[in-house]
Design a protein around this nucleic acid. Structure first.
Lengths: 115, 115
DNA sequence: CTTATGTGATACCAATTGGTGTTATATAAA
DNA sequence: TTTATATAACACCAATTGGTATCACATAAG
């Protein structure tokens, strides 16, 4: 039925993998090229790339003996959509009201009659 | 300097914790109340709540002998902002503009200046 | 052909994670 | 006071994770 967010969030939960995504936003890279930017072995980088692939955040295509890793940006959307559910509760959704209240008062407290 | 996204993404990377966030979007809950909704011990739930707290996704206040867990929705924003960087590359976002900006690439859909 | 390069896959290790169970402590109730 | 409740803190365990090292295989270059 609904999209499984788990592989996506799992892939995003590691700083190395988020760095890789940023790199691939600039350009497609082979495994070796990605690994050049990190202080770890190609094997370790390959594992990260596999997890990114399982989260469908990247696509991997073989060209000769090289594996080209490319960003698959649309796979990020379901995660953003899920997180944006909470936008409803963000403070600035009431931006006008809140700004007005906070601009003068040191702390928001709108109790008028307490009895 | 910049906000550390790691505790946030780590907290979001577990389905139980994401479920807890959804529950807390409806209403604040004690640990025991959260635990009622899962097939695991209160201790396990408490650990998840601690990780959510470390990611600042929830706030915990003691009331008497109870610990009230409340959603802290604004903590989700840095993660959304980070993910939204990739919005630029989404297919249906500003498709025309994107084609214009990256006009080096001839692979885009219906460009008129082909000749 | 031989050699070098890029990758895939595996075994292995240390550290972390998700979970249980137990104990201790603080608070509410009787 | 005694008793029950809600949580905190800990030890402990199995499974997973991040990493290395190694081997095998496919492809490019000589």
């Amino acid at each position: 039925m609904s999209f499984d967010l788990q592989p996506t969030f799992r892939a995003l939960a590691d700083p190395t993998r988020r760095d890789i995504l940023m790199m691939l936003a600039d350009q497609e890279l082979t495994i070796a090229e990605v690994a050049e930017n990190f202080d770890m072995t190609r094997g370790a980088v390959k594992k990260h790339l596999t997890i990114l692939q399982e989260g469908q955040l990247i696509s991997v295509t073989k060209q000769g003996r090289e594996a080209i890793n490319a960003l698959n940006p649309n796979a990020i959307r379901p995660a953003v959509d899920w997180l944006r559910y909470f936008e409803t509760f963000w403070d600035d959704k009431l931006a006008g009201l809140k700004a007005a209240v906070e601009s003068d008062l040191p702390h928001t407290d709108e109790s008028q009659s307490h009895d």
